[in-house]
Amino acid sequence: MSELARRKLKKNARPYLYSGLSLLLIFLIVVFPIIYTLYISFTNMNLYHWYDFTFIGFQNYLTALFSFDSGFLTSLGITILWTLVNMVIQLVIAYCIALLLNSKFLKFGKFYKTLLMIPWAIPGYVSILLWKTGMFNYQFGLITKWFNDLGIVIDDLLSNSVSAFICCTVVNLWLALPYMIMIIDGALQAIDRSFYESAEIEGCGRLRKNISITIPLIKPIIGPAVLITTFTTFKQFDIIYLLTKQPVNTGANISTIITYAYENAFITSNYGYSSAVSIIIFILLVIFSALTNQNVKRKNSYGEE
Protein backbone atom coordinates (compact mmCIF):
# COMPACT_ATOMS: atom_id res chain seq x y z
CA MET A 1 0.00 0.00 0.00
CA SER A 2 1.37 3.39 -0.96
CA GLU A 3 2.02 6.05 1.65
CA LEU A 4 -0.76 8.20 0.17
CA ALA A 5 -3.33 5.40 0.32
CA ARG A 6 -2.30 4.62 3.89
CA ARG A 7 -2.73 8.26 4.89
CA LYS A 8 -6.11 8.42 3.20
CA LEU A 9 -7.25 5.25 4.95
CA LYS A 10 -6.00 6.58 8.28
CA LYS A 11 -7.85 9.86 7.69
CA ASN A 12 -11.08 8.14 6.67
CA ALA A 13 -10.96 5.55 9.43
CA ARG A 14 -10.33 7.98 12.25
CA PRO A 15 -13.92 9.34 12.56
CA TYR A 16 -15.28 5.79 12.68
CA LEU A 17 -12.70 4.84 15.23
CA TYR A 18 -13.56 7.77 17.46
CA SER A 19 -17.27 7.11 17.25
CA GLY A 20 -16.74 3.34 17.44
CA LEU A 21 -17.83 2.94 21.04
CA SER A 22 -20.97 5.02 20.51
CA LEU A 23 -21.77 3.08 17.35
CA LEU A 24 -21.29 -0.17 19.22
CA LEU A 25 -23.65 1.02 21.95
CA ILE A 26 -26.24 2.16 19.39
CA PHE A 27 -25.92 -1.24 17.73
CA LEU A 28 -26.44 -3.06 21.02
CA ILE A 29 -29.31 -0.89 22.22
CA VAL A 30 -31.15 -0.08 18.98
CA VAL A 31 -30.15 -2.31 16.09
CA PHE A 32 -29.54 -5.61 17.86
CA PRO A 33 -33.03 -5.79 19.49
CA ILE A 34 -34.65 -5.17 16.10
CA ILE A 35 -32.56 -7.90 14.44
CA TYR A 36 -33.23 -10.27 17.34
CA THR A 37 -36.98 -9.54 17.23
CA LEU A 38 -36.92 -10.23 13.49
CA TYR A 39 -35.12 -13.53 14.14
CA ILE A 40 -37.58 -14.55 16.90
CA SER A 41 -40.52 -13.69 14.63
CA PHE A 42 -39.49 -16.56 12.35
CA THR A 43 -39.41 -19.09 15.21
CA ASN A 44 -41.99 -20.91 17.32
CA MET A 45 -40.68 -19.43 20.58
CA ASN A 46 -43.54 -19.71 23.06
CA LEU A 47 -44.13 -21.19 26.52
CA TYR A 48 -44.16 -24.69 25.07
CA HIS A 49 -40.91 -24.16 23.13
CA TRP A 50 -39.15 -21.76 25.43
CA TYR A 51 -35.59 -22.98 25.09
CA ASP A 52 -35.97 -25.40 22.16
CA PHE A 53 -37.61 -23.13 19.60
CA THR A 54 -37.13 -23.78 15.89
CA PHE A 55 -37.42 -21.90 12.61
CA ILE A 56 -40.98 -21.93 11.23
CA GLY A 57 -40.76 -19.47 8.34
CA PHE A 58 -43.59 -16.97 7.85
CA GLN A 59 -46.14 -18.89 9.92
CA ASN A 60 -46.30 -16.25 12.67
CA TYR A 61 -46.82 -13.51 10.10
CA LEU A 62 -49.67 -15.44 8.50
CA THR A 63 -51.28 -16.02 11.91
CA ALA A 64 -50.86 -12.35 12.80
CA LEU A 65 -52.33 -11.11 9.54
CA PHE A 66 -55.27 -13.51 9.68
CA SER A 67 -55.91 -12.89 13.39
CA PHE A 68 -56.05 -9.16 12.74
CA ASP A 69 -59.76 -8.92 12.20
CA SER A 70 -61.89 -5.83 11.83
CA GLY A 71 -60.71 -4.88 15.34
CA PHE A 72 -57.27 -4.18 13.96
CA LEU A 73 -58.59 -1.91 11.21
CA THR A 74 -60.71 -0.02 13.74
CA SER A 75 -57.62 0.36 15.95
CA LEU A 76 -55.61 1.61 12.98
CA GLY A 77 -58.33 4.17 12.24
CA ILE A 78 -58.39 5.28 15.88
CA THR A 79 -54.59 5.54 15.88
CA ILE A 80 -54.59 7.80 12.81
CA LEU A 81 -57.38 9.95 14.25
CA TRP A 82 -55.56 10.09 17.60
CA THR A 83 -52.32 11.21 15.92
CA LEU A 84 -54.01 13.82 13.74
CA VAL A 85 -56.16 15.34 16.49
CA ASN A 86 -53.30 15.46 18.96
CA MET A 87 -50.76 16.89 16.55
CA VAL A 88 -53.06 19.61 15.22
CA ILE A 89 -54.21 20.75 18.68
CA GLN A 90 -50.70 20.47 20.05
CA LEU A 91 -49.17 22.60 17.31
CA VAL A 92 -51.88 25.27 17.48
CA ILE A 93 -51.78 25.60 21.27
CA ALA A 94 -47.98 25.43 21.46
CA TYR A 95 -47.66 28.04 18.73
CA CYS A 96 -50.10 30.41 20.44
CA ILE A 97 -48.45 30.01 23.85
CA ALA A 98 -44.98 30.44 22.36
CA LEU A 99 -46.13 33.63 20.62
CA LEU A 100 -47.51 34.97 23.88
CA LEU A 101 -44.29 34.08 25.67
CA ASN A 102 -42.36 36.08 23.09
CA SER A 103 -44.58 39.13 23.32
CA LYS A 104 -42.60 42.24 24.17
CA PHE A 105 -45.37 43.33 26.55
CA LEU A 106 -45.13 40.19 28.66
CA LYS A 107 -43.70 40.48 32.15
CA PHE A 108 -42.29 37.53 34.13
CA GLY A 109 -41.86 35.56 30.88
CA LYS A 110 -39.20 33.30 32.36
CA PHE A 111 -41.43 32.47 35.30
CA TYR A 112 -44.25 31.39 32.98
CA LYS A 113 -41.82 29.34 30.92
CA THR A 114 -40.69 27.51 34.05
CA LEU A 115 -44.31 26.88 35.04
CA LEU A 116 -45.11 25.51 31.61
CA MET A 117 -42.23 23.07 31.83
CA ILE A 118 -43.55 21.43 35.03
CA PRO A 119 -45.56 18.66 33.27
CA TRP A 120 -42.35 17.70 31.53
CA ALA A 121 -40.53 17.32 34.82
CA ILE A 122 -43.12 14.92 36.28
CA PRO A 123 -42.74 11.28 35.20
CA GLY A 124 -45.42 10.43 32.62
CA TYR A 125 -46.73 7.47 34.62
CA VAL A 126 -47.31 9.67 37.68
CA SER A 127 -49.03 12.38 35.63
CA ILE A 128 -51.37 9.87 34.00
CA LEU A 129 -52.38 8.34 37.33
CA LEU A 130 -52.82 11.79 38.88
CA TRP A 131 -55.17 12.79 36.08
CA LYS A 132 -57.00 9.49 36.34
CA THR A 133 -57.56 9.53 40.08
CA GLY A 134 -57.53 13.24 40.80
CA MET A 135 -59.47 14.61 37.84
CA PHE A 136 -61.42 11.90 35.99
CA ASN A 137 -62.39 9.55 38.84
CA TYR A 138 -66.17 9.41 38.93
CA GLN A 139 -66.46 9.21 42.70
CA PHE A 140 -63.71 11.51 43.89
CA GLY A 141 -62.40 13.36 40.82
CA LEU A 142 -62.45 17.15 40.55
CA ILE A 143 -64.29 17.23 37.23
CA THR A 144 -67.30 15.28 38.57
CA LYS A 145 -67.23 17.49 41.67
CA TRP A 146 -67.28 20.69 39.60
CA PHE A 147 -70.19 19.45 37.52
CA ASN A 148 -72.03 18.30 40.65
CA ASP A 149 -71.54 21.73 42.20
CA LEU A 150 -73.11 23.23 39.08
CA GLY A 151 -76.02 20.83 39.45
CA ILE A 152 -75.11 18.91 36.29
CA VAL A 153 -75.05 15.11 36.44
CA ILE A 154 -72.44 13.59 34.18
CA ASP A 155 -71.49 9.99 33.42
CA ASP A 156 -68.11 8.46 34.12
CA LEU A 157 -65.90 10.25 31.59
CA LEU A 158 -63.65 7.25 31.09
CA SER A 159 -66.45 4.76 30.45
CA ASN A 160 -67.62 6.30 27.19
CA SER A 161 -65.41 5.99 24.10
CA VAL A 162 -65.81 9.59 22.92
CA SER A 163 -65.30 11.23 26.31
CA ALA A 164 -62.45 8.83 27.12
CA PHE A 165 -60.78 9.80 23.83
CA ILE A 166 -61.06 13.46 24.82
CA CYS A 167 -59.67 12.70 28.30
CA CYS A 168 -56.71 10.85 26.79
CA THR A 169 -56.11 13.77 24.41
CA VAL A 170 -56.12 16.23 27.31
CA VAL A 171 -53.55 14.17 29.21
CA ASN A 172 -51.42 13.75 26.11
CA LEU A 173 -51.49 17.51 25.53
CA TRP A 174 -50.55 18.13 29.15
CA LEU A 175 -47.56 15.85 28.76
CA ALA A 176 -46.47 16.85 25.28
CA LEU A 177 -47.04 20.61 25.17
CA PRO A 178 -43.92 21.67 27.14
CA TYR A 179 -41.62 20.09 24.56
CA MET A 180 -43.43 21.67 21.62
CA ILE A 181 -43.65 25.07 23.34
CA MET A 182 -39.92 24.96 24.04
CA ILE A 183 -39.06 24.11 20.43
CA ILE A 184 -41.36 26.75 18.93
CA ASP A 185 -40.21 29.31 21.48
CA GLY A 186 -36.59 28.65 20.48
CA ALA A 187 -37.49 28.87 16.80
CA LEU A 188 -39.30 32.19 17.31
CA GLN A 189 -36.29 33.69 19.04
CA ALA A 190 -34.10 32.72 16.10
CA ILE A 191 -36.10 34.88 13.65
CA ASP A 192 -34.35 38.07 12.64
CA ARG A 193 -36.41 41.06 13.89
CA SER A 194 -35.61 43.03 10.73
CA PHE A 195 -38.13 40.90 8.80
CA TYR A 196 -40.91 42.19 11.04
CA GLU A 197 -39.65 45.75 10.85
CA SER A 198 -39.70 45.61 7.04
CA ALA A 199 -43.18 44.09 7.11
CA GLU A 200 -44.42 46.84 9.41
CA ILE A 201 -43.02 49.49 7.05
CA GLU A 202 -44.94 47.72 4.25
CA GLY A 203 -48.07 48.00 6.40
CA CYS A 204 -48.53 44.32 7.26
CA GLY A 205 -50.88 43.42 10.09
CA ARG A 206 -50.27 40.85 12.84
CA LEU A 207 -51.97 38.01 10.97
CA ARG A 208 -50.05 38.66 7.73
CA LYS A 209 -46.75 38.73 9.67
CA ASN A 210 -47.60 35.37 11.21
CA ILE A 211 -48.63 33.75 7.95
CA SER A 212 -45.90 35.19 5.74
CA ILE A 213 -42.94 35.47 8.09
CA THR A 214 -43.21 33.54 11.33
CA ILE A 215 -44.69 30.27 10.13
CA PRO A 216 -42.47 29.82 7.03
CA LEU A 217 -39.35 30.67 9.03
CA ILE A 218 -39.98 28.35 11.96
CA LYS A 219 -41.13 25.46 9.77
CA PRO A 220 -37.69 23.97 9.02
CA ILE A 221 -36.61 24.41 12.65
CA ILE A 222 -39.61 22.70 14.23
CA GLY A 223 -39.92 20.08 11.45
CA PRO A 224 -37.82 17.35 13.14
CA ALA A 225 -39.53 17.97 16.50
CA VAL A 226 -42.94 17.62 14.88
CA LEU A 227 -41.82 14.41 13.21
CA ILE A 228 -40.55 12.93 16.49
CA THR A 229 -43.72 13.96 18.34
CA THR A 230 -45.89 12.51 15.58
CA PHE A 231 -44.21 9.14 16.06
CA THR A 232 -44.43 9.32 19.82
CA THR A 233 -48.14 10.08 19.50
CA PHE A 234 -48.70 7.37 16.90
CA LYS A 235 -47.18 4.68 19.07
CA GLN A 236 -48.59 6.06 22.34
CA PHE A 237 -49.39 3.25 24.75
CA ASP A 238 -49.19 4.45 28.36
CA ILE A 239 -51.88 7.11 28.31
CA ILE A 240 -54.59 5.08 26.61
CA TYR A 241 -53.73 1.85 28.39
CA LEU A 242 -53.44 3.30 31.88
CA LEU A 243 -56.49 5.56 31.57
CA THR A 244 -58.88 3.06 30.03
CA LYS A 245 -57.55 -0.48 30.46
CA GLN A 246 -55.65 -0.70 33.71
CA PRO A 247 -56.17 -1.78 36.44
CA VAL A 248 -59.80 -2.13 35.32
CA ASN A 249 -61.23 -1.83 31.84
CA THR A 250 -63.35 1.32 32.10
CA GLY A 251 -65.71 0.31 29.31
CA ALA A 252 -64.34 2.72 26.69
CA ASN A 253 -63.21 1.13 23.47
CA ILE A 254 -60.38 3.23 22.13
CA SER A 255 -57.73 0.68 21.28
CA THR A 256 -54.85 1.97 19.22
CA ILE A 257 -52.76 -0.51 17.24
CA ILE A 258 -50.27 -0.78 20.09
CA THR A 259 -52.88 -1.51 22.80
CA TYR A 260 -54.67 -3.83 20.37
CA ALA A 261 -51.45 -5.72 19.68
CA TYR A 262 -50.75 -5.94 23.41
CA GLU A 263 -54.17 -7.44 24.17
CA ASN A 264 -54.10 -9.79 21.20
CA ALA A 265 -50.50 -10.89 21.06
CA PHE A 266 -48.32 -10.03 24.01
CA ILE A 267 -50.55 -11.52 26.71
CA THR A 268 -50.27 -14.88 24.94
CA SER A 269 -46.57 -15.14 25.93
CA ASN A 270 -45.99 -16.38 22.39
CA TYR A 271 -42.80 -14.50 21.67
CA GLY A 272 -42.57 -15.64 18.04
CA TYR A 273 -46.08 -14.41 17.31
CA SER A 274 -45.66 -11.20 19.34
CA SER A 275 -42.40 -10.47 17.53
CA ALA A 276 -44.14 -10.91 14.17
CA VAL A 277 -46.81 -8.42 15.31
CA SER A 278 -44.07 -6.01 16.44
CA ILE A 279 -42.30 -6.28 13.11
CA ILE A 280 -45.56 -5.60 11.24
CA ILE A 281 -46.09 -2.46 13.35
CA PHE A 282 -42.42 -1.54 12.83
CA ILE A 283 -42.87 -1.82 9.04
CA LEU A 284 -46.01 0.34 9.23
CA LEU A 285 -44.03 2.98 11.14
CA VAL A 286 -41.14 2.82 8.67
CA ILE A 287 -43.55 3.38 5.76
CA PHE A 288 -45.20 6.23 7.64
CA SER A 289 -41.77 7.70 8.43
CA ALA A 290 -40.60 7.44 4.81
CA LEU A 291 -43.73 9.22 3.56
CA THR A 292 -43.48 11.99 6.15
CA ASN A 293 -39.74 12.42 5.63
CA GLN A 294 -40.25 12.82 1.92
CA ASN A 295 -42.81 15.50 2.57
CA VAL A 296 -40.56 17.33 5.05
CA LYS A 297 -37.59 17.19 2.62
CA ARG A 298 -39.69 18.49 -0.24
CA LYS A 299 -40.97 21.43 1.77
CA ASN A 300 -37.72 22.20 3.52
CA SER A 301 -35.63 25.35 3.45
CA TYR A 302 -38.03 28.11 4.27
CA GLY A 303 -41.01 26.21 2.99
CA GLU A 304 -39.85 26.15 -0.61
CA GLU A 305 -40.61 22.99 -2.50
Binding site: N137, Y138, Q139, F140, D156, L158, S159, V248, T250
Partner: peptide
Protein backbone atom coordinates in the same frame (compact mmCIF):
# COMPACT_ATOMS: atom_id res chain seq x y z
CA UNK B 1 -71.59 3.19 42.81
CA UNK B 2 -71.62 4.33 39.20
CA UNK B 3 -68.39 4.56 37.25
CA UNK B 4 -65.25 2.47 37.19
CA UNK B 5 -64.81 0.45 40.35
CA UNK B 6 -61.07 0.12 40.68
CA UNK B 7 -59.06 -0.85 43.75
CA UNK B 8 -58.50 2.68 45.03
CA UNK B 9 -62.09 3.85 44.51
CA UNK B 10 -63.75 0.84 46.14
CA UNK B 11 -61.42 0.73 49.12
CA UNK B 12 -61.71 4.48 49.66
CA UNK B 13 -65.51 4.24 49.64
Amino acid sequence: PKGTQDYATVNTL
